[in-house]
Design a protein around this nucleic acid. Structure first.
Length: 681
RNA sequence: GGCGAAGUAGCUCAGACGGUAGAGCAGGCGGCUCAUAUCCGCCGAGUCGGGGGUUCAAGUCCCUCCUUCGCCA
């Protein structure tokens, strides 16, 4: 990113779909954008940081209907899940855009009218198969067994008149641009992916939906019977916030430094749809499109359609927002996938933050408080050892190195570079031994402590974009000035002698790394598994340490079986206390919908009303016993608090209880109808 | 099937321009005691997925095969 050395740094996250609950994927992307924004502010660049919510589309409309409220009221409520979350994660966005805001509607309609006037949008016939769940059209040959190729859900054949954007004519220009700007799409593997995609002819893009089918969208300015396709609407948010068609000067100023941070799942929409839209609108293309990877939690990708979530709120509440931010930035290489396990998280927290950084601050502070009157000592002539120069050289050379790495998006390497300074300071303390020298040579002991504290101040300032809260606190606690606002202002020797060192408690308390034991059938129940921990537990705790079968996940298929189950019936399970039984959340659920799972002859996908705000998805291995149509409206017994599990790509959020014999399965059902969600005991 | 990426110590991963394999964690040994049983030092022969090739020299370039993953609206 050599071209970011000066000028504006305008960083965007995707706008998040308002129907989702925020999960680690949203959290990571937004925190990464925040870290980049904070670093670029430190680099002295004017920085503008945008995030927001995507609020139109079919699913919003449906969810609103289900809740019995207007679509607007629904999104007004839902967007808070995101907007209110970011401050708690120390996200410093300058703006939060909602696609339902008048400022945005205006820009979308203006852009559409412009393209319509220029003949870049035309009306045409569309024929295809529509999947409501993903809001996409598919050609006949794309369907899998007549079902949606992405979800296996129902599709409807639709023939309708629609409006199309002449995307096809921009293919050559786009390919040329990507070749001319090798780092336009990052990382390189994603760039290759887009180039590969563009080897085929590019089609025109359908940018409308008839109002008869979907009302909740921005009306086309030139045909009120249609609303705008959500992507065409959503992508323009980046321009709206910069002032397009409102404040030309401001827009031109910000837009020349725009960087889009996205997940790899929306690479095509950004690098093809969006860039050709910009070409058609005769606007400059973004500097960079940066596609990050996914966090794999229990070997399952986090995604909006699966709904499996590790709640970032829960992680930060448990261990602190700064540790969470540190882990996310240190562990993931931008662009690649990474595993999220609580064990890895706690190791980072304990080793890097508690042992190295926190302990360094603590050991220095306690020593100063005990032996140096509780104030930063005078540097004097230093420690009287050659290590001073070495330490100072490393610290003062670090800002430039960190900047280089951050501009190259190697955040994990930048973090590691700073942590190497922290480790160097710990070594420096061992080398200069101020705690020994103080008895014989107090001036040199003071000098050594000053050097160590000053080195620590450098490290904390360079980590401040990652951990803004803790770094500010710690700087204050060691008597240092507040975090610098520009790296140029980070100068060796600015730590004022005589300032009070007030640090009291260990800044990063250690947490025990839980050990997960094999689920011994005769033993007490295993400790409650933490979110995202099951995979690692299985890997490490398989019987006799054999990882194979555990990894292959013989998976409860969303159905528990009683009766003559396979195995040895004489091996009766150990008795459990009533409390153990009561820990199970057994409830009556009403099947709202049922359908076969693609590529499986055993599984059914059920939507089950368990008396909650929204139905749960249950993947049950009962397809051989029941036809989907026979289940709808019937009630069965479910385990409602079983850890959710992905089966055949679908998240199963509860387990149906059934017995079986040689003739197959029989699910347990109440003898008379009960309210959905009724507890069983 | 087409295109692309990855396969390096028990684990997680680094390894611009080709020159006799590195870090962290885990494990072993030792040291210090200011500090959160923390910190510091020492200990790593791992066919760098298999095979072939180019080269004085190849995880590092070329070919091929295997495995895993991604993209193909």
């Amino acid at each position: 990113m050599s071209d970011t050395h000066s000028g504006v740094f305008y960083i965007t996250t995707p706008i998040y779909y308002v129907n989702d609950r925020p999960h680690i994927g949203h959290g990571y992307c937004t925190i990464l954008a925040d870290v980049l924004a904070r670093f670029h502010r430190l680099f002295g660049q004017e920085t503008y940081f945008l995030t927001g919510t995507d609020e139109h589309g079919q699913k919003v409309q449906e969810a609103a209907v289900k809740r019995g409220m207007s679509s607007q009221a629904h999104v007004d409520d839902m967007h808070r899940h995101f907007r209110d979350l970011w401050p708690t994660l120390h996200v410093s966005n300058d703006d939060f855009i909602r696609t339902t805001e008048p400022r945005h509607v205006r820009v979308v309609q203006h852009a559409l009218q412009l393209l319509w006037d220029r003949g870049l949008i035309y009306r045409g016939e569309y024929e295809g198969f529509y999947s409501p769940r993903v809001e996409k059209f598919f050609a006949a040959d794309e369907l899998v067994d007549g079902k949606c190729p992405e979800t296996g859900g129902e599709v409807h054949q639709i023939k309708e008149s629609n409006y199309f954007f002449r995307m096809s004519q921009y293919r050559d220009a786009l390919v040329a641009h990507i070749h001319a700007h090798p780092d336009f799409i990052r990382p390189e593997s994603r760039r290759n992916e887009v180039l590969g995609f563009l080897k085929q002819p590019l089609q025109d893009l359908c940018i409308s939906r008839p109002k008869a089918r979907l009302e909740w969208g921005i009306p086309l300015p030139f045909d009120p019977d249609y609303v705008t396709y959500v992507w065409f609407d959503a992508l323009l948010n980046y321009c709206t916030a910069a002032g397009l068609y409102l404040d030309d000067e401001r827009f031109a100023h910000l837009w020349c430094g725009v960087h889009h941070l996205i997940g790899k799942d929306i690479l095509t929409t950004h690098s093809v749809y969006w860039t050709t839209m910009l070409m058609a609108l005769e606007l400059p293309l973004p500097r960079h499109i940066i596609a990050h990877g996914w966090w794999l939690v229990d070997r399952t990708k986090m995604s909006k359609s699966l709904g499996n979530v590790v709640d970032p709120l829960a992680m930060k509440d448990k261990y602190g927002v700064d540790s969470l931010r540190y882990f996310l930035m240190r562990e993931m290489v931008v662009g690649l996938d990474a595993d999220f396990t609580e064990e890895a998280f706690l190791k980072r927290h304990n080793f890097d933050l508690a042992n190295d950084l926190g302990n360094l601050a603590n050991r220095l502070a306690k020593f100063v408080q005990r032996s140096m009157g509780g104030v930063v000592p005078a540097p004097g002539e230093g420690s009287g050892t050659p290590h001073d120069d070495d330490l100072r050289a490393m610290a003062t050379g670090l800002p430039a190195r960190v900047r280089e790495l951050v501009e190259d998006l190697r955040i994990e390497a930048a973090v590691e570079a700073v942590m190497n300074l922290v480790r160097r300071i710990n070594r420096y303390v061992a080398e200069t031994e101020p705690f020994k020298v103080i008895k014989t040579d107090p001036a040199h002991a003071a000098g050594a402590v000053y050097h160590a504290l000053e080195g620590l101040r450098f490290a904390l300032n360079l980590l401040a974009p990652i951990m803004p809260g803790k770094c500010s606190e710690l700087l204050a606690a060691i008597g240092a000035p507040p975090p610098v606002t520009s790296l140029d202002a980070l100068r060796w020797g600015d730590l004022p002698a005589g300032a009070a060192v007030t640090l009291q408690d260990a800044p990063f308390p250690r947490h025990e790394v839980p050990t997960f034991q094999a689920a011994d059938p005769g033993a007490a129940p295993a400790p409650a598994r933490k979110p995202g921990k099951a995979g690692a537990a299985a890997r490490e705790a398989g019987p006799s340490g054999a990882p194979g079968p555990a990894d292959a996940t013989p998976a409860p298929m969303g159905v528990a079986q009683a009766g003559v189950a396979s195995g040895d019936p004489s091996a009766a399970p150990a008795k459990v206390t009533y409390d153990h039984f009561a820990a199970l959340d057994l409830r009556v659920g009403t099947v709202l919908a049922a359908e076969a799972v693609a590529k499986s002859d055993k599984l059914l996908r059920l939507d089950v009303d368990l008396g909650e705000a929204r139905p749960r998805q249950v993947v049950a291995g009962i397809a051989k016993a029941y036809a989907p149509a026979d289940l709808v409206g019937r009630q069965f017994l479910f385990v409602a608090n079983l850890e959710p599990r992905k089966v055949f790509g679908l998240l199963s959020e509860a387990m149906v209880l059934a017995g079986h014999d040689d003739d197959g399965l029989a699910a347990f059902s109440p003898l008379r109808p009960l309210p959905a969600g009724a507890k069983a005991s």
